[in-house]
Write a protein that binds this DNA or RNA. Sequence first.
DNA 1: ATTACATTTGCAACATTGTTGCATTAATAA
DNA 2: TTATTAATGCAACAATGTTGCAAATGTAAT
Lengths: 125, 125
Amino acid sequence: MKTARNTIAKTKIQELIILSPIALSHSEIHKYLEGLCDRVTIYRVLDRLLEEGVIHKIVDVDGVIKYAGCHSCSTEHSHNHIHFSCQKCMSVTCLENVEPSFKLPKNYKVSEMNFTLSGLCPQCS
Amino acid sequence: MKTARNTIAKTKIQELIILSPIALSHSEIHKYLEGLCDRVTIYRVLDRLLEEGVIHKIVDVDGVIKYAGCHSCSTEHSHNHIHFSCQKCMSVTCLENVEPSFKLPKNYKVSEMNFTLSGLCPQCS
DNA sequence: ATTACATTTGCAACATTGTTGCATTAATAA
DNA sequence: TTATTAATGCAACAATGTTGCAAATGTAAT
């Protein structure tokens, strides 16, 4: 069987994402790590963290993929909340407590959601 | 003053997007056009069509940028509806009549929305 | 501690996607 | 038909993401 290993790269990346108040992109993580590991390693670590359910993936309004820690997902892994993408400071925040509601036509089977609003965050407005 | 021109490329691309029941990505448009024009031209035409408000941009769950015709936007240019991204046939559809509702914390100023669900569309489920 | 081994990494090479500058082409108004 | 300038094509580049493989390293067993 395969056993996951805790490497410096993985630990650092996980820490970075979990501690960050906003969602981070691959390139942002790359900058913060300052050459601690290869660009490719970051991609692979992110994939593993996603599989493990430690972090989740958010697509911002421009199609940039960002990663955020799963805070409220400890009991159940649900990401049906809204993300807010600030157009000024480019930060992406999870609005964990906001659950949107809507009526869907028949025969659509939903397995994932991605709700992103953009505009100005409290700090920038 | 600058005057917009109707070129073959622009006409074809606009037609393609407007007539398509699903949202199309740059690469899909490129394939359909079969070398009618350059890759770069498609990017520029898409930018112009967006500016003119003829089409709108959708980011799917994987961060892929797709373009769809503005059908119900003739009177008011509003895109606050849900998009559905099928995981099997990869199609992106506008659910024009579904308007989501939610309660937002104070001090957030929203200017854009991107609501994308993914799962199986009626054809694939 | 040492060994064995599979996981993880780094590097190189590549694929895809998107952008920019510039000379040429072509749509439109006069 | 001609003048103007928007639009195109091409080349070159940048950013982002993927894959294969040899080397390094974490972990469990000895």
